[in-house]
Amino acid sequence: MTKYKGTVIIGGFIGLLPAGGVVWDYIQYVLGFQSMGYNVFYIEDTKVYPVFGDTWDDSSTTIQRLHEIMKSFGLENRYIYLDELTQQIFGKSRKEYLEICKSADIFINISCANVMREEYLRIPIRILLDTDPMFTQIQINSDQTFSPEEGKLAELAKWHTHHFTFGENIFHDDCLIPKGDYSWKITRQPICLDYWNNKKAPAPKLVFTTLMNWKAGKKFQYGNQSWGQKDLTFPIIQNLPELESGISFKIAIGQTINDENEDSFEKLLKYGWEIVSTLEASGDHKKYQNFIYSSSAEISVAKETYVKAKTGWFSCRSACYLAAGRPVVAQDTGWSKNYPTGLGLFSFSDKNEALEAIRKISGDWDNHSKNAREIASSYFDHKKVLGNLIDSL
């Protein structure tokens, strides 16, 4: 039972980064709060301009894309887009925008996506929600950013009244996330289970899949260590197809930074991975969902930084696999301390543990599928996740 009902504003970048997984990451906050009786609006106000399909002085493609996505969920009257160059507002009139901000009780800035304007600073509860633990805290505690265009997170963070993180082990002695000046609270990805009522059975031959960014950002240097991405962890499982020939392995890879990784991708093909385009697998939220539905289970690594720092981070994508009744085999970031493993969900630290989990799922897929959905219901149901978030304010 939540303590509070009122107007909630969700900040994100659905229009800016329209990959299917990104859409689901943010839209489930909007859908979740709406289903719980909140008056909820989505605001995209990033000052990043633009990314896909637009020229530097024309964001019309981004705006149209955002409108179509919101409309597909019945939320076409629940979004606002602020164009940084023209200062125009789309989705609502300027008067409506100001009234929404004035009446809002809570502003949730997911992934540090939105800037903080005067209108938002008047909202009494302003939540910075860190979905990229360790990377976020490094940026807050140093001058490093992923790109020169990004503002300093230290400046952004101080304008929020509450700070939440997906780094669920932040208070554990072995976790290396620097807390800094903030009292971080723990949260996780909410899943709207009604949107993941999968009726499709997997193909007779099991297919283990994942979607991932190979190297979504540069390495950071912090605490006399380097902090990297998935290109450094994927070699742990790269030859699994050679070891389990009765199973198909499929991967969609995005954000490779440059062409220096072509040799790595050639190796994956030689090992037996099927590489599909990210456009095919996650060009929009429907393709993303269908890619998961067409899978038997997920096999995935985590960013090197999540693993080294023992953050306890758990993938939003893996939570969707579980909700779809697809078992998950995921590299351990310390998350195994917080979730049940061994039936429907498996953690691994090396290739042999991953292989053992794959064979267990192959031997009893139906049982593991059923338990995967039960884990999603127990740990990621939006009513529990968002209710806990509100209750902890």
Rank of each mutant, 00 (worst) to 15 (best):
D105S: 12
T305V: 13
Y321A: 09
K71D: 06
R188D: 10
A113I: 00
W313N: 13
F314D: 02
Y38L: 04
D143A: 14
D181C: 06
Q238E: 15
L269A: 14
T341D: 07
S142K: 04
S264C: 08
K384M: 14
Y195D: 10
P190D: 13
Q255E: 13
Q331Y: 01
F171S: 14
W159P: 00
L243P: 00
E149M: 07
A323N: 08
K179A: 11
H172V: 01
Q88H: 09
I247P: 02
G228Y: 04
E242P: 00
G74R: 09
V23P: 01
D57E: 12
E149C: 00
I275A: 09
S294T: 12
Y120V: 09
D130A: 09
D332Q: 05
K287N: 12
G74C: 07
V23R: 09
D105A: 06
Y195C: 08
K360Y: 02
R359A: 01
R326Q: 08
G217C: 09
G246S: 15
K102H: 10
Y321Q: 05
V30S: 05
D57Y: 06
Q139S: 14
W313R: 13
M212Y: 03
L355Q: 09
E99Q: 13
V8C: 06
Y306A: 14
W313S: 11
T165K: 03
W273L: 10
Y293P: 00
L343I: 10
M116T: 01
N239E: 14
K218Y: 02
A19I: 10
P133L: 08
W365S: 04
Y195W: 13
E76N: 11
F41S: 03
W273G: 07
H172T: 03
T145S: 15
S59I: 11
F234K: 07
E280Q: 14
T145R: 15
F73N: 09
G344R: 05
G12P: 01
Q137D: 08
G334R: 07
R188Y: 04
W365D: 05
E96R: 12
E242N: 12
S349Y: 08
I247F: 11
R126Q: 01
A154K: 14
S245C: 04
N258G: 11
E84L: 04
H172E: 15
V307P: 02
L153K: 07
G325T: 08
F346K: 10
A357F: 00
I186D: 02
D259Y: 08
